[in-house]
Amino acid sequence: MTPTQNIKSFSALGNPALRACLALALMLFLGIIFNGDGAFFKTGTHRDALRQISVYGILACGLTPVIVSGGIDLAVGSVLALVAVCAAKMAIHWNWPSALTVIACLMVGAACGGVSGLITAKLRLQPFIATLAMMVFARGLAKYASGGMKISTAILNPDGTYRYAEVPPFFRFLDSRVLGGNVSVVTIIFLVFAAVAWILMSKHIWGRHIYATGGNELASRFSGVPVVSVKILAYIVSGTCAAVAGICQAAQEQQGDPETGAGYELVAIAMVVIGGTSLAGGRGGIGLTLLGVLTIGYLDKILSINAVPEAGRLMLTGGIIVAAVLTQSRKKN
């Protein structure tokens, strides 16, 4: 078979969804081979894998519209930490009711996204720079709001001793399981957000505007697409998703750690890209992101149950990301 034929047979694989499915299937196949003494065949392993990827997955759902619109949001990991700190402060230290905590946290996230969006769309700063700035700023704000300490159930009294608060019931709920103990609540939240994002992107007019803006911004502008507000909304969605992820993170850690979520933005971006969404904008979707999330999540889980040393994990992850994205970009050649 000549190289050209080889490429042809790759493109014969058709649409990106099929290729993303293939990557995931390959990953699951690897899991069956390297099953960690049978651990891969236990339902608990899959439940845990899905719990572990949920926070990343929620971030990736928010990132997908931003990336399809031709942008990027590097701030999601920091916004996650900021919201985790806020959530812990409100729910544990101030005893706010859960609804109020959630609404306030979502507003914090949406505000961060909104500022990134404004700077990008209105002030025309490159999204990479604007969200890099927000990434640094939100991390600083998280440290400021927490005083540099983790906001945990140990609360400092004025006399230097500690009293211990209860873990808020809605933290416990978010960290529990439903459906006979088979599915983590955070996984359900992830799936709900994936569904909402999917509807917004494929059924709603905003979704079509996102694709148009990412495909050709100038042409979209001339044909009456409100490019600025479409882009700002994309960043607001991303910030809100980061806030949801932050609440889930705080609930699972039972604390608000200002250092948490460092590097999560890169994992989430990798998940989006591995699914087949183009970093150049205009192509991709939530369904693909879902496949990307599962692929990376299972890769991580398989490495973990086999107790592969850290060095090997990093090298394998890097290699597999390149391989997966290479198959995605075959069509362009």
Binding site: G36, A39, T45, D48, Q52, E253, T260, I305, P309
Partner: peptide, 20 residues
Amino acid sequence: ADMKWLEPDARKEMESALSR
């Protein structure tokens, strides 16, 4: 496993240990 001092990583690795 190397959890890099991070609580979320420690939890993930422990889940793997528990299923094995």
